[in-house]
Amino acid sequence: MIGVGKIKQYSNVLDKPVSKGKQEVSLSAFAFLFSELVQYNQTQVDNIAELERRLEDAGYAVGARVLELLCHRDKGNRRETRLLGILSFVHSTVWKVLFGKVADSLEKGTEHEDEYMISEKELLVNRFISIPKDMGTFNCGAFVAGIVRGVLDGAGFPAVVTAHFVPVEGLLRPRTTILIKFAEEVLKREARLG
């Protein structure tokens, strides 16, 4: 029995360090599950705005949990308290855990002080989805917008988050932009902190 005693034994399950977790799941399995989620919600609503809201709510629950988990796993139970800190946490840490990569870009809105944008050339949830013409500007990225809202809300940065298709020159497919509009109180607090 070589190696016995090398593995540290923890008598109490609470003493065990939190495992990194399995880092990947099958993309196909996820795509089918997500497709069913959209199809199910479609049967429950009678307009597109409602569908978008339901997807966002589904994402919100994910976001709230992801924040909790990542703060515990990566940050030693600390979380970001500053605006830019939490944004880059979403843009890199959250994105990496959920989608296996950092988001393509994080920008500040040019017209409004309280708006930030996270853009993705090809959002993972939209990889296999073509929106029918009669659905207009509907974007399944609403689910991801919900995740972002869940993370921000949980961390004390209430915001309105929406997903939009933005056409890019020279590319066949539009990219998806997650638009984050922070609540007034967040910016006031941020100004106070200096």
Binding site: A31, F128, I129
Partner: peptide
């Protein structure tokens, strides 16, 4: 299988109208 069957807006056995496909 990728762009049609994983598309939530496609109805099985119906004509395929998927941009990505």
């Amino acid at each position: 299988t990728d762009y049609v069957l994983k598309n939530p807006f496609y109805e099985m056995e119906m004509p395929i109208r998927c941009e990505l496909f």
